[in-house]
Structure formats: C-alpha cells, structure tokens
Design a protein around this nucleic acid. Structure first.
Lengths: 152, 152
DNA sequence: ATATATTAAGACCTTTTTATCTTTTATATG
DNA sequence: CATATAAAAGATAAAAAGGTCTTAATATAT
C-alpha cells in the first residue's frame, strides 16, 4: 500500500504538465524538475518511461519538451503508478501478510480497506485531466514552491 | 506513510509474543520466524534491537528465548515502529511533499489524513497487550500459516 | 563443572531504489 | 544547411534496505 519515490515524482510531474503544458507549450525536464523539486536526471528517466507508456508526450529540439495530448489527459493516475511501480506494491497488505483479505484479515485490514478503496477509486476513476481540475479548483498543492507566472 | 518490511516483521512478531509467550514460556527466534514466515537471521537482528529498546525481553541458554513482561506489554505498536523505523517515514506525505498539511494540502491530503489519524490512534493509544486481545477476540490474523497447538 | 541451547554482536553480502553522467538522435529555426 | 536545443538511451554510481554468517557470551540443566 505504498508508492515508490519514483512514482510520486511521476504523479506530481504529470499533474504539473496537466496544469501547465499544452501541445503549443511544451516544458523541459529542467523546468519541471526545478518546479516540483525533484532530481533532474532522475525525472528525465521517469519521463522517458512515461512517454513509452503513452502517458505523456514529448518532442525533441528547440521549443521541444514534454506535454499532454488530449488522449494523454484521459489516462489515469493509476496508469502512472502501474507504469512506474507496477500494481503489486499498491496491493500489498499494510502489515505484509501474503494474502490478507476479508476472510483472512490482518489486524488493521478493516481500517486500511476503506482508505485503499477511496484513494484507489480516485486514482482509477478520474482522468488525469479531471484529477488536475479538481486539484486546482480545490486549492491543492503539487509543490510548496512558488510556481512562477510563466506557468500560470 | 509507510512501514518498512523490518517494522512489519517486528510488529507481527511482537504481537505473536503477546499472544503466545510468557515469562515462563519463552520462544526462540527460530520458532517465531517459522510461524510468522520471516527470515530467521533478519528477525534475530530485529529482536536484538527490540530488546535494547525494552519492547521485548530475552534470556539466553536452554529454555531461553523471547517473551514479554507485564511492563513490555504496556508498550505500544507505535513504540515498535519508532524503535525500528523512526517516526519520519510514518509522517511523510503520501505524495512526498515536504510539508504537506491542512494549510498546504497535497492532492490526496484530506483522504489520507483521516486514515492516518485512525490507524495511528490505534497504534498509539492501545498497549500491545490490549491490541493483541482485540486481535484475537476479533479473529484477526498475524500469519496465514496454521499455528501449531503448542502455541494455543 | 560441563555440555548445550539460545541470544548478542558485528562483519559482510545482495538486491533494489535512487541518482548521475555521457553520448546519440531528432527537430526547429536562422 | 548549420546550429542550437532538447529528449532518448545506455552505462555507471551511490545509497538504502533487506538478508546472511560467524563468533562470542551467557544461562540452564544435568
């Protein structure tokens, strides 16, 4: 029931793209890494993988960078996690039991289960674009840094 | 908001001791490692640390092993986690933001927060003995293996 | 006392995760 | 077409987590 640092970076960065990029305004790794406060070359690697997974898009060269197409925006946060971590981590029992479920519940199963359903529901049922809209409209943060007006 | 494998092992094993050991019936690492399905020498290390932290007790030699005293039984699951992982991991933001809180909430802060409070409450407010009682009375599992009658 | 069972301690190894560096490839623009 | 810019790819490195092994210390039972 936990995300790797890699997939946290990937989620935040993809949501950043959802909010600030477009097909006519691509953003370089460097800018995103600084905005989200993530190690630049590490994020570059993650982005390569997300591009291969068709979750984000990229173009090389001057004015190139990363961005989301309409189609990309219809993927989900769960797709990001699956692409980076796979689904195993997310489904592991909070206390590590090999097959913890309603029939064989670990000591915290019935506390964890509703939370898991709630958050996985959001990650699965909202598109990245919908998720991003919700975030901005509700004043949630992707970073505690000030995002410069360039991206507003 | 996550436990290392080490502290998961430590929690399960300590709860196992709470249920099956006593000052007159100590249990060896070997037996616990097999019962809980955890690597033997790794658990031995963890137990050394828990003994140093006065969360469990041990005696060497024949008929020796690990057990809980009355006093040990009054410690909490949170003490175990703190002893093995420290508290940092547990308090980290689900998406990795450096200072995520009510004033600067990450996109899932208000989903994670109630869960965190709920589970941390249990870990903090129940003694290990109380927690263990609750587990057995409610039929929760510490392992999916059959525990042999020796420990019943 | 001695043999034995069992923890304690510390060194060591392996795997996974995180992070960096260098070189190559693609592309927009003057 | 030349140049500059940015991603892609791949090799490598560093750190953290997980796990093992060997030897020493110590308590118990006989």
């Amino acid at each position: 029931m936990m995300l790797s640092r890699a997939s946290k970076y990937a989620i935040l960065s993809t949501l950043f793209l959802a909010e600030h990029s477009s097909e006519t305004h691509k953003i370089s790794v460097k800018v995103i890494a600084e905005s989200i406060d993530v190690p630049n070359p590490f994020l570059a690697k993650l982005f390569q993988q997300l591009v291969r997974g068709k979750i984000i898009s990229s173009t090389k060269g001057p004015n190139g960078g990363f961005y989301l197409t309409k189609k990309n925006g219809k993927r989900t946060v769960l797709d990001i996690i699956e692409n980076i971590d796979g689904l195993t981590r997310l489904n592991e029992c909070f206390l590590g039991l090999s097959e913890c479920d309603g029939a064989n519940p670990c000591p915290v199963h019935f506390i964890v289960e509703p939370f898991k359903n709630g958050i996985l529901g959001k990650f699965r049922d909202l598109t990245i674009m919908e998720f991003s809209k919700e975030i901005t409209s509700q004043g949630r943060k992707l970073t505690l840094k000030d995002i410069t007006p360039e991206f507003k």
